[in-house]
């Protein structure tokens, strides 16, 4: 209910502002909706949105599995941590733009380069979060699993993973928002399709309605994925916690 209210007030402010502003700089909501529908009818919208989502999914999955594994290792093995730490600091502080440009220079303007660049940008935060989670693991439960001779897989699945779940959720959430931002830049710089590419085109033509149509659809998709995927996962992972009174 509250969400709806804040959405409606957003629309209202936009509408009022558009009435006063120059139409080419800030078109009114119906104007943007027209463009959006036209793009949807021609199929362009779904093509570009699909391309972007596929890149996001791939880069996100890659960064989460790889980053999770590296973070777990660095949290468990001191040597791995000592070896990995300088790289981690380097990657954490490397601007996204540098990674993207270098990837395109070294691997060409290819899909692989784009996805790798996005994944590398997200990787270090996943590593740091999962390393933190691994360090916070409860040793006494490890001992319990050892005494009862629980198999490695069982221990991982039932003892380790539930403890890491909040960290995985945190990494997923912050990672997703990072990937959303970076994917557009990567597409703008070196891909012939995707929302980022289309926004680049709109920018060159100063086509504000087109730009807004794509940005808003994109924002809507992000919101939907957040509420439908990330939040239920977090709720499920913390189901066992006694509810606060």
């Amino acid at each position: 209910m509250l969400r709806l209210l804040s959405f409606v007030s957003f629309l209202a402010i936009w509408w009022v502002a558009a009435a006063y502003a120059d139409g080419t700089k800030l078109p009114s909501p119906p104007a943007v909706l027209d463009v959006l529908l036209a793009e949807a009818r021609s199929g362009e919208l779904f093509l570009h949105l699909g391309a972007t989502l596929a890149r996001v999914a791939l880069a996100f999955a890659l960064a989460m599995t790889l980053g999770g594994a590296i973070g777990y290792l660095m949290g468990r093995v001191r040597l791995a941590n000592r070896l990995g730490d300088p790289w981690l600091i380097l990657l954490l502080n490397l601007p996204a733009l540098v990674v993207i440009v270098l990837a395109y220079i070294w691997a060409g303007l290819t899909e692989v380069a784009a996805i790798a660049a996005i994944a590398i940008n997200k990787l270090p935060t996943a590593v740091v979060t999962l390393r933190e989670g691994t360090r916070a693991l409860d040793r006494s439960l490890d001992e319990m699993a050892t005494v009862f001779a629980m198999s490695r897989w069982r221990t991982f699945r039932h003892v380790i993973l539930p403890q890491l779940a909040p960290y995985v959720a945190a990494a997923a959430r912050s990672g997703l928002s990072l990937v959303w931002k970076i994917v557009l830049v990567a597409e703008l710089l070196g891909r012939p399709n995707g929302v980022g590419f289309e926004i680049g085109v709109a920018f060159q033509l100063f086509d504000t309605p087109l730009l807004l149509a794509y940005s808003l659809t994109f924002a809507a998709v992000v919101l939907i994925i957040e509420t439908l995927l990330v939040q239920p996962f977090e709720a499920r992972a913390s189901r066992w916690r006694p509810r606060a009174a």
């Binding site: 006494s140 009862f148 069982r154 539930p162 066992w240 916690r241």
Partner: peptide, 27 residues
């Protein structure tokens, strides 16, 4: 030798039910 232990604190898995806690140790 199979070992069974009652630790000084219960050391149950908070995210598994009572029955699951027992079954995980004794599949």
């Amino acid at each position: 030798a199979r070992a069974g232990m009652v630790f000084q604190e219960p050391r149950l898995l908070p995210w598994r039910s009572v029955e699951e806690n027992v079954r995980l140790a004794a599949p």
